[in-house]
Simulated assay, not measured.
Amino acid sequence: MTLITSTSNLTVEKLQEDTSLGHFLYGLLAAFPLLLLPSLFSLLINMLQREAGMGDVLKSHLGWQRRSMFGLLAVLLLGYSLTVTWASMTLYLLGTVWFTARLFKGWLSLLEGRSI
């Protein structure tokens, strides 16, 4: 009987993990086409929360967000360094599509309560 009780307590704790920070940061990241500032603010909050004690699901999503943001910044800097306009615009477009796909995939996984 105690085995069933401890298993159901573990399931309840996993379901009750607070993921509101993850949703807030995904919301800030989603504002990147308008301005880059909300996304940079999200990255700053993400980096400050790196050492905070949190569940496995939220920790995996914060790592996913960091890698996505650093990848987007790398693509934007590479596009900025190119002198050919069509090449830099193509790189900006591809980077934006890639980042948007990662944003949707991560946020949907967080809504389902899965690690990424």
Score class of each variant (00 low, 15 high):
Ala52Met: 05
His61Leu: 07
Gly95Met: 08
Leu94Met: 06
Gly95Val: 13
Asp56Thr: 04
Ser88Asp: 14
Leu73Asp: 01
Leu73Ile: 13
Leu93Met: 15
Thr90Pro: 02
Gly71Cys: 02
Phe70Ala: 04
Leu94Arg: 02
Arg66Ala: 10
Ser60Asp: 02
Gly55Ser: 14
Arg66Val: 06
Leu72His: 13
Gly53Phe: 07
Arg67Pro: 00
Thr83Pro: 09
Gly79Phe: 05
Lys59Tyr: 07
Asp56Arg: 05
Trp64Asp: 01
Ser68Thr: 01
Tyr92Glu: 01
Leu58Trp: 04
Leu72Asp: 11
Gly55Arg: 05
Leu91Ser: 13
Leu72Arg: 10
Thr100Ile: 08
Ala87Met: 14
Leu94Gln: 03
Ser88Phe: 06
Trp64Asn: 01
Leu62Thr: 05
Thr100Cys: 07
Leu77Pro: 03
Leu76Met: 08
Asp56Cys: 02
Trp98Gly: 03
Ser88Pro: 02
Leu77Lys: 09
Met89Asp: 15
Leu91Gln: 13
Val75His: 03
Leu94Ala: 13
His61Asp: 07
Val97Cys: 08
Gly79Lys: 09
Tyr92Phe: 14
Met69Glu: 10
Val84Ala: 11
Leu78Asn: 04
Thr90Tyr: 09
Tyr92Pro: 01
Trp98Leu: 06
Arg66Ile: 03
Leu82Ser: 11
Met89Gln: 15
Val57Met: 12
Leu72Trp: 13
Thr90His: 10
Gly55Gln: 08
Leu62Pro: 03
Thr90Trp: 13
Val84Lys: 14
Leu72Pro: 06
Gly63Ile: 00
Trp64Glu: 00
Leu73Ala: 04
Val84Phe: 12
Gly53Glu: 15
